[in-house]
Design a protein around this nucleic acid. Sequence first.
DNA 1: ATTTGTGAACGCATTCACAGCT
DNA 2: AGCTGTGAATGCGTTCACAAAT
Lengths: 210, 210
Amino acid sequence: MTIPEVTTRRLSLYLRVLTDLQDAGVSTVSSSRIAERCDLNPAQVRKDLSRFGGFGTRGVGYKVPDLRAVIEGILGLDRGRRVIIVGAGNLGNALGDYPGFNRGGFDVVGLFDVLPDKIGQKTRGGRPIHAIDDLVDLIGDRGAAIGIVAVPATSAQEVVDRLVAAGVRAILNFAPSRPRVPEGISIRHVDLSVELESLSFFLSGRVRAG
Amino acid sequence: MTIPEVTTRRLSLYLRVLTDLQDAGVSTVSSSRIAERCDLNPAQVRKDLSRFGGFGTRGVGYKVPDLRAVIEGILGLDRGRRVIIVGAGNLGNALGDYPGFNRGGFDVVGLFDVLPDKIGQKTRGGRPIHAIDDLVDLIGDRGAAIGIVAVPATSAQEVVDRLVAAGVRAILNFAPSRPRVPEGISIRHVDLSVELESLSFFLSGRVRAG
DNA sequence: ATTTGTGAACGCATTCACAGCT
DNA sequence: AGCTGTGAATGCGTTCACAAAT
């Protein structure tokens, strides 16, 4: 069966809620409780989870630690995903030290840049900045790494091409452009201008509150 | 007529393409050319634009400078939106200096923090860090500002509440949580963990390439 | 009594296809 | 001939509603 992307994104939200609940010592949870915290419909939660199997107990709900482990497995967070960041500017530096990127199954293994004067320097967090040419050496042929693109729009396509050539199959793009990737590679865009501009549209007053 | 949010987000993409084309000296453009650059269907582009009026000429296409100006107007980018960033950590600092946030009708008017030892300090870009209590004084009652939340999940709700109390009606949240807002306030979430985790799911191989 | 799992109904965005202009 | 504008068709995710299970 083919899973829609929206579902995988919500799984990630559910996981966060479950982690919180587990930390709080809660043992079972209902779909409506999860839904509430994620601002969703309870049926949505159940349908999402049931795509992967029947993890709940009728009349009771879901066992928090079990469901948490299941979702971690589904998302592949038990496999130590390596993360590579290209672009050691302000944003790249911030992402390199971002807690969420160095926890929960992720490990930022290197920061790269194309600018010669940055190479050999260290990031604010003390990580060495590598030359992008050393990409292949560092990630080797083990593949299954995630590439983060935090360079200006003008060099985004080039960086994406290099990442793909180095065997990276999943890319998170922060550059304000839409680089192309070959079939079979997944690219996702975090477009800060789009977010800001669509909020501006909302302020203009023509819309339903989004 | 009520405009879906996806449409406003695409308008932002179209605007970027049009700006590029104008800089390149191109005078007219067809829907298929815009669509190509945004990885969309041409009919999608035409339908989006036609929601706001008939800006094109049959047999010819759209006049680049005219359409650009129209979209800027629709998005309200001709009104100098003031942006407030709360959270002077790595991410807040990076966002404060992000070119896209200080261009195209946006102006970062202040960086705030809740931590007492940060207040009075300067950001890496040389901006002063204000106490969040001074929020109301700084943005006054002119309203129509956009608030950016770049604090840990634990204080996100509190910060959102303060922003709303200060008259902010549009919020961009980078914290890994889903703070609640009253009716009429727009909040959008940029959730880096969700992005990364859904890419991890893709690498697990169960999905269509997204 | 409570909550899951799911087929059916619904709503909505995307895409098609063609009439209408230039 | 070429391209826009748009009603109709399609596709798909969301929500409803209820049978099934404890």
